[in-house]
Structures are given as C-alpha cells and as structure tokens.
Design a protein around this nucleic acid. Structure first.
Lengths: 239, 239
DNA sequence: TCAACTCTGTGCGCTATCGCGCTGATAAGT
DNA sequence: ACTTATCAGCGCGATAGCGCACAGAGTTGA
C-alpha cells in the first residue's frame, strides 16, 4: 500500500543529489558513508559540530529540550530529503537540539569545516540549504500548533506518515516508549492509539514493529499538519 | 525596574544597524519608515511578500495556523532585533505564517525584491540574516517544548519578558483576549494568571494595560525557556 | 447623563491526558 | 528449557485546562 517511490532516489540523499557533479567531486574527499544505529545520539545540546549528516536510509529526530535534563520533544524528522546540523550553515558552532537516530540506516557524513568552505561559494548547495531551512522552519512552526491543539492519535498519525515517507519499507521498527518521548506523551497513550488504529485496520503492530497497512486512510485520519508540511517539502525538492 | 537600555539602540532596528554605511546608502531608496498599528495583519498564510519589515518600536507576532480558519498560535515575537518576512531571504515567495502587530510602533519597510538583490552580494547583511534565522529557529523550537510542558502562568511570564525586552516602556497595552490567542489558551486563563501575578506584586494591570513592576522576580518565576532563547538572541546580536 | 458596548472576573461541569501500579507477553541469555 | 529483562496492555484516581454562562467594571458615544 506504500506510495510509489523510485528506489534510487530513495537511497541517495536528495540534497546532495542537487549538487552538480563538478562541485560534488570537490566535496568528495570530505564525504564519508557511515551507518547510524538506532537511538544513537548525533549531538547533545551544547556539543560543537564536528560533522553534518546527509541521511540516506537513516532517519533522524531533532529534539527540543525544554530544560536541561528534563524530557525532550521531537520537533522535526529528517531523512534523505535533508541535512542534520543545519546550524553550521547558519554560522553557529554548537548544537541546541538533541539529535537522535530513530531509524537505523546509512548517511553521508561531511566535516563541518568543509560545509563552511563550500556553501560560501554561493551556488546550488547554498540555495538548496536555504530552501531546506525554510521547509524546516515550516515543519517546526507547524509542530507548535499541532502539539498544542491536536489529539495524540492525530499527532501519531502525522509522525507515522512523515517517517514512512522517508523509508523504503512499510515496516517501522520502534518501540512505543521511543515514540512517546518523541511526541512528549506517556507510553501508554501510544499503546492505546496504536491499538485503536489496529482495530480500524490502518496498521498492524507487534513488539517493536509497526506495519503500515492502509496509507490512504492514514492520510485521511491524520491532521492537516501533515499535508501542510509535506507540500512545503515537495516544493523545496522541486516536485 | 526595567533593565538598562540605551535609547538610541532601542529605537533603531539592530539588524539594519549592522549594515555598513556604504551599503546602507545603496539600500536607502528601497527603505521607508511606516507606522504599524495594533492588530494590523502584515501577512496572511498564502500571501505573496511585497515587503519585509525591520521593526523599530513596533512589536510583531508570528503565528502558526494549524488549519485554515482555526485558531492560530504565536510561535515568535519579533521586535527591533529582527526582521519580518525572513522567508524572502530563504528564497520563498509566499508566507506560511500569519503575522500580526502586537505592539503599535514604527518599522522600516523594504521591498522584497530589494532584499533579494542585496543579500545575494554576501556580506554582513547575509551573515546577520543567517544568524538571525538560527535565533528564530531556536525560539520556535523552544516554543514547541514550552507549549507542551509548561504551565500557562510560566508561558505568560515568558511572553511578558520577551515583549518587555523589545519595548522602551514598562507598560504593555494589550487585552487578555489578544494574549490568550497568542498563547493558544482561553481568555479566562490569562485573567487568572495575571490576577495571581498581581497578588504577588510582580505586575499590576487594568483594562488593556499591564505594568511590569518587578522584572527580576518575573525572570525567576518564568520558565527557563526565556533564558535559553534570550541567550541565543544575545549571541546573534554580538552581545 | 444614560445607554450600549467592550473588557474583565468568577463559578461549574467536562475531557484529554497524566501518573502510578500491576499484569501479561515476547525476546534474550545461560 | 528455564530464568531474567524488556516491552506492551489496562484500570483508576488526579489535574490542568476547556467551554459555557453570566455578572460586574470600565469605556464610548449620542
């Protein structure tokens, strides 16, 4: 039931793909493919940026930390459409968000210093990063309202769809506890919501695994926030 | 009880002030001082950008609209430290946020096309706007967690402090209803919170007017979100 | 000066969500 | 195969905040 996806386009990071081959060759020495494993922490608040990451099959979450030590809350999902460590592009040296891996997979890692050298040349990378910044702003901004006004089930649907968009498979490997911390709700609330969704045959799930069954109906049940953010990302990607 | 503020620095927009005089002269023909009146709408979602605004004494709110027509929710306060219409800088033509004036005052208006011409030159304006983008991202990101986890009273304190920082006076002219829509809560909740704060002698208020009495204690009572965001803005402004 | 309007104050029942405790199910390791 | 650890399911009382209804206070205008 997954929507159509071109395999190649999915495997390679789409932001990097926008860079013309000539320039890409210049970047190559500073690039390195890495595997990001589940729950790995890429940055903690206050960390200096050593690298930025362009996810391929990996999926990453940006978290906002209300106060040192307290529970955080997911503000954005980043997959092959984006980059993690955007602050480097914006001229900032340390991370404010906590960034963790929510879906195991590969990513291209680039030295932060290399990014700084290259984006100053102007050109397509800079333009793409600016557009991406806007898409991210839109997503986070939408998340504020969504988190405030929408029911847990709607928000969960939103998250499922955004995650699914960044995956090849219909099977998401994650535990309820993890999702609950991303959405900033209790673990039990996720269990309830998933259980209801399974009754409606939208998904099926078992221990540490959720399977998307009816993508179309999921989109109907999710709040409009998903569509608003998706549209912005599609525009940025030139779709 | 207001913290010390240099009058000149407060009156002039600090982002524009970063531009060297030479370049500023080039910009001058595209600049125009305007008065923004209370509750004026600068952009609606979907509007094309004709101008960007650099507030002087005016204070403006960026709102996130969860769904067409429903209640919005404030995600950022912009005063003389920033610019409204940042999306233009990021290469986007239409606004996603609703933007309204929460404090009457003056601003410098610039044609969107002029901004596009000038920021491409690189230079200090581009750098300042990038840093400002980061500060804004921080603020919105923090707002997500704050809105989710913190009590109405704490959030109100946060808003009061951020607004006060962007003002010359200790007197804020606004009605409870207006604040409630910015924070995404009921009008009555604001009345309650203000009433409690008045009992504690932190503020005093009457119809459409709130007076800051004890700024220091306000900062103590507010959630840490205020400090986190403030620090980021101070760094961006080079303080 | 009086009426009309707008803004603020207050009480009451309702709901989504939380916090906690506990049980049952599934996986992993010796 | 049996123990242990981890993950998921479920019920119950507590609570922050909502929605509504209405009363009082402060403006504005004829």
């Amino acid at each position: 039931m997954a929507i159509f996806k071109e395999p190649e386009a999915m495997i390679e990071n789409r932001l990097l793909a926008k860079i013309p081959k000539k320039e890409y060759k210049q970047l190559a020495p500073d690039l390195e493919q890495v595997t990001l494993s589940l729950a790995e922490v890429l940055y903690k608040p206050g960390d200096s940026f050593r690298h930025v990451y362009f996810p391929n099959t990996a999926i990453v979450s940006l978290l906002s930390t209300p106060v040192e030590g307290s529970a955080d809350l997911g503000v954005s999902v980043v997959g092959n459409e984006g980059m993690v460590g955007l602050s480097v592009f914006l001229g900032v040296k340390t991370s404010l968000n906590r960034v963790i891996v929510q879906g195991e997979g590969t990513a291209i890692r680039m030295k932060a210093s290399a990014l700084q050298r290259h984006f100053n040349h102007g050109g397509p990378l800079q333009h793409a990063l600016q557009r991406y910044t806007h898409a991210l702003l839109t997503q986070i901004s939408q998340t504020v309202a969504c988190t405030r006004f929408h029911l847990i089930e709607e928000r969960l649907l939103c998250w499922l769809l955004m995650t699914h968009d960044r995956m090849l498979s219909d099977e998401i490997r994650i535990k309820h506890e993890f999702i609950s911390s991303l959405l900033g709700v209790r673990r039990e609330a996720i269990t309830r919501a998933l259980s209801d969704m399974q009754k409606k045959k939208l998904i099926s799930y078992s221990r540490e695994k959720i399977t998307i069954l009816d993508r179309t109906e999921l989109e109907v049940a999710a709040c409009k926030c998903y569509g608003i953010v998706k549209k912005e990302y599609d525009q940025y990607l030139g779709l």
